[in-house]
Amino acid sequence: MSADDSFTNKEWQVIGRAIARLRASVMAVVFAMLGGGVLFLATAVLVVNATEGMPVGPTLSLLNNYFPGYSVTWPGAFIGLVYGAIVGGAAGYLLSYVYNLVVETRHPHMKKG
């Protein structure tokens, strides 16, 4: 089998020129998992490694400026999981939404999907 048997040159050109789209729902879920997961882990590591008498995660706990109720504690880790997921999901969705919008404006001739 050779390349010519299966696809014409034109078809290869089409393949070569195809522009990827981002699936907003998939990106939202991936970013949500990342956001939630990272914040949960970051909090959990600090809680586990806490030393008696020392403040636990003073810098990370500043995040409660943005996420009311968040703290570097076990309950806080779970609250952070939720917040991280929400913010991550929104960022992922926004990212792919803007990306697809720009692709569609720049390549109006290309079909969807």
Partner: peptide, 27 residues
């Protein structure tokens, strides 16, 4: 098969990905 390969080998539009990241980071 062309569609399948189109999907597999589709390129990212650098300007679009740049713009999307710009919005997310800036905002």
């Amino acid at each position: 098969p062309v569609q399948v390969l189109e999907d597999a080998f589709a390129k990212y539009d650098p300007v679009a990905l740049g713009a999307a990241m710009a919005v997310v980071f800036g905002l």
